[in-house]
């Protein structure tokens, strides 16, 4: 670790400490003794009915899906046929399911990476003094505001065989690269991912832009005094301070990838030959087809939920462990520096 960055961290730590010292201590204020009923917020009773209904509906639906997953059922007035674990064993032996999982992982990794890099770069650029910054902000944020259903025909127009992209390629002499982007297995997933990237950068930008506003200017100023350039400040000061945003984005992207449905269905319907299939499109096909099996769809939904919960816990735990480990590493580095 360079001397500059260690000094910057020391200064940051000092600044942080000063800030904490300047806060009024919670322990020193007058304390009111509270009974058991005092533990509840005063308006709790007023939100109780809505809470019961909303939370009840959510958990009822999850429990009911779990129940249905052990049956074969066409829905409505058809008979429930118990099948034990057959739905789950069928899912795990279905190559389409593994294709959907593979696509989910690829989608998550690519979209998350692009969102973080794009979001940070745009946010950093907007914090520097660029001309017409507000115009750029609007341009970056627009993709979040537009509904996927509204944009799907435009995306199809761009990516289809006689679409905009192929025409541009032909116009600039790269006609050999023109191909059926939506209509072939090797590129249909790419189209879905690029559409996802297009819509996600703006969201990353908003969060990072807001988080960067909260960074203490004194810390950045200290970095500059120590001779750090823009990139050093970005990587050594800004990014560590917006780490919580990155973790939140990781969890949100993971859940988005697991639930992904609308843009995929509208652009490729999971095809061709299931090449752009996701868990969301699998569940939808199974739920809404003429000969649907809600038991199978429920088993898929339960698997989706378990993956979402498990991976969210893993991401959060690993981020906490890193956060806990970081100050120790930092202190060790500082002490090593002093010993030198």
């Amino acid at each position: 670790m360079s001397n500059t960055s260690i000094r910057m961290r020391e200064r940051a730590a000092v600044t942080g400490t000063d800030r904490e010292q300047s806060r009024p201590s919670r322990a020193t204020g007058p304390r009111k003794r509270r009974g058991a009923s005092g533990l509840l917020p005063s308006g709790f009773m007023w939100i109780l009915p809505a809470l019961i209904i909303s939370v009840g509906l959510i958990y009822y639906s999850i429990a009911y899906s779990g129940f249905l997953s052990f049956f074969s059922w066409g829905g409505g007035r058809q008979h429930l046929k118990p099948v034990g674990l057959d739905n789950y064993t069928e899912i795990f032996s279905d190559p389409v399911f593994w294709m959907a999982i593979r696509n989910t992982v690829i989608y998550f990794v690519v979209v998350f990476t692009v969102q973080v890099i794009g979001g940070v770069l745009f946010a950093a650029a907007m914090h520097s003094r660029v001309i017409m910054a507000n115009v750029y902000k609007v341009i970056i944020v627009i993709p979040i505001v537009v509904a996927p259903a509204t944009m799907a025909p435009a995306h199809i127009q761009v990516w289809q065989s006689d679409g905009t992209l192929n025409r541009i390629l032909e116009a600039i002499g790269l006609g050999d690269l023109a191909q059926s982007w939506i209509g072939q297995s090797t590129t249909s997933l790419l189209v879905v991912i690029l559409v996802g990237c297009w819509g996600s950068i703006g969201f990353g930008f908003i969060l990072y832009f807001g988080a960067m506003t909260q960074i203490d200017p004194e810390m950045l100023e200290a970095g500059r005094i120590d001779g750090a350039g823009n990139f050093r400040i970005l990587f050594s000061l800004v990014l560590p301070n917006v780490r919580s945003i990155t973790i939140s984005l990781a969890i949100l992207n993971l859940i988005t990838a697991l639930k992904l449905f609308d843009s995929v269905w509208l652009i490729t319907q999971g095809g061709p030959a299931h090449s752009s299939e996701f868990l969301g499109t699998m569940i939808y096909s199974e739920t809404s087809g003429a000969s649907r099996d809600l038991g199978y769809a429920s088993a898929l939904s339960i698997i989706l939920m378990l993956i979402a919960v498990a991976t969210s816990i893993i991401v959060q735990r690993s981020s906490r462990e890193r956060a806990a480990a970081r100050p120790r590493r930092g202190r060790r580095a500082v002490s090593e520096e002093r010993n030198v």
Partner: peptide
């Protein structure tokens, strides 16, 4: 024809016509 067979035919046609497979 069952829906499973009909969907199987569709996917088979897509596999045949997909230039990248």
């Amino acid at each position: 024809a069952t829906e499973k067979s009909l969907h199987g035919i569709v996917v088979a046609i897509q596999r045949v016509l997909d230039p990248t497979l």
